[in-house]
Nucleic acid binder design. Structure first.
Length: 111
DNA sequence: TCTTTGACGTACA
DNA sequence: GTGTACGCCAAAG
């Protein structure tokens, strides 16, 4: 968070804090940043692809069901799943396996 | 300025 | 479990 105040800047920072091999959902980030809506998180992350200078592990952010709803926003639809599997996250049918276990809640685990 | 849209979430029938 | 409705707030047209 540092000194940036923009919605997407804050979302970027929290997203970068997601531990390796873990995932989170939009609601958790929205709640942690008090953005008021998970849509703002998605809207902000939509620009993460443009910002290549500051890599954001947006592939670790999924919806509440653990589905890879963002795969369509990546350069290639399979890229998101490949990245997750590359980190040891099992993906089945475009959904994160054991999502509940891998879920990373910033408000609780970040402290 | 108003309307539509969006990587979502919750509530309810 | 499924479908519909609404909230949420900012950007783009």
């Amino acid at each position: 968070m540092s000194k940036n105040s923009s919605y997407f800047e804050q979302v970027f920072e929290v997203t970068r804090l997601i531990p390796y091999g873990r995932v989170t959902n939009y609601g958790a980030i929205a709640n942690y940043l008090s953005l008021g809506s998970a849509r703002m998180v998605g809207w902000a992350l939509n620009k993460c692809n443009w910002n290549q200078d500051d890599p954001v592990p947006a592939h670790r952010v999924v919806n509440r069901k653990g589905e890879l709803s963002a795969r369509g926003r990546f350069p290639t639809p399979t890229m998101m799943q490949e990245l997750l599997e590359s980190e040891g996250v099992e993906v089945v049918d475009d959904k994160v396996k054991d999502f509940k276990t891998l879920l990373w809640n910033p408000s609780e685990e970040l402290l």
